[in-house]
């Protein structure tokens, strides 16, 4: 006769509430340091690493960028990026997404490094990473033209939670049945204020627009100009 001792504890709490608070704290720390944090989400092979290398090349020493690059295994991406910007490889050992703890572990190695933008290159996966706040100010999802223009509706959470959509590999458009407007419209039905930029990192189209977007985001969230940016903020290659 233990039934009369049974009790119900009402909780009504988001299971990620604590994680979100930790992420908000990290975000505040980074805001105070003047570093914009950008979380890049996409399928494997959509062009995140190439985009980062070309973004760093575009800016040269004008904007100081660093990247924490997540993969399940190997440090290939960090090696690929090393000639262009400081890069630390985070290996998840099988996990499908980066966690805030792993990001903070990587970031600890850099606490003294002054950075205008910290990129987090998430594990290639359009599903799990979209559920995890890594303390970023801006979330950007990449969709390569080779993946098909029907992906936003198939992976709604990734698009719903992103502030920007980069349609990558536009140099391949002549060979693919990919309609940039269809993909953009689909994404906007899910996230109406998503900023859509089509680009080819390899050939350079759209890169200036992307870099301008990042600078606007930096002003909005961090509220300062990068230390090395001239009074005239026009970016020249």
């Amino acid at each position: 006769m233990t039934s009369n001792e049974t009790r119900v504890i009402t909780i009504e709490r988001d299971v990620t509430a604590t994680a979100r608070m930790d992420a908000a704290r990290f975000r505040e720390t980074m805001t105070a340091r003047g570093t914009l944090v950008v979380n890049l989400l996409s399928s494997p092979g959509s062009g995140k690493t190439t985009l980062l290398a070309e973004t760093a090349r575009f800016w040269g020493d004008q904007i100081r960028c660093g990247v924490l690059v997540g993969d399940i295994a190997t440090d290939r991406d960090a090696q690929r990026l090393a000639p262009w910007l400081p890069a630390i490889q985070l290996t998840t050992g099988g996990a499908c997404h980066l966690s805030l703890a792993l990001v903070q572990q990587g970031w600890q190695q850099w606490e003294e490094l002054p950075l205008d933008i910290l990129f987090i290159e998430n594990v290639g996966n359009l599903v799990c990473p979209s559920s995890h706040d890594l303390g970023e100010h801006v979330r950007v999802v990449l969709l390569a033209t080779t993946e098909g223009d029907d992906k936003p509706a198939k992976y709604p959470k990734a698009f719903r939670t992103s502030d920007g959509l980069l349609i990558t590999k536009t140099d391949l458009l002549p060979y693919l049945p990919f309609d940039v407007d269809v993909a953009a419209q689909d994404a906007r039905e899910i996230r109406p204020d998503i900023e859509v930029i089509a680009l080819s990192a390899l050939q350079g189209q759209g890169l200036a627009q992307w870099c301008q977007f990042l600078q606007e985001q930096r002003r909005r969230h961090v509220g300062r100009r990068p230390a090395n940016e001239s009074a005239d903020s026009t970016v020249n290659r």
């Binding site: 009790r7 119900v8 009402t10 009504e12 709490r13 988001d14």
Partner: peptide, 8 residues
């Protein structure tokens, strides 16, 4: 994912 309650 909301944790609603626990029966103890």
């Amino acid at each position: 994912v909301m944790i609603e309650s626990v029966v103890v």
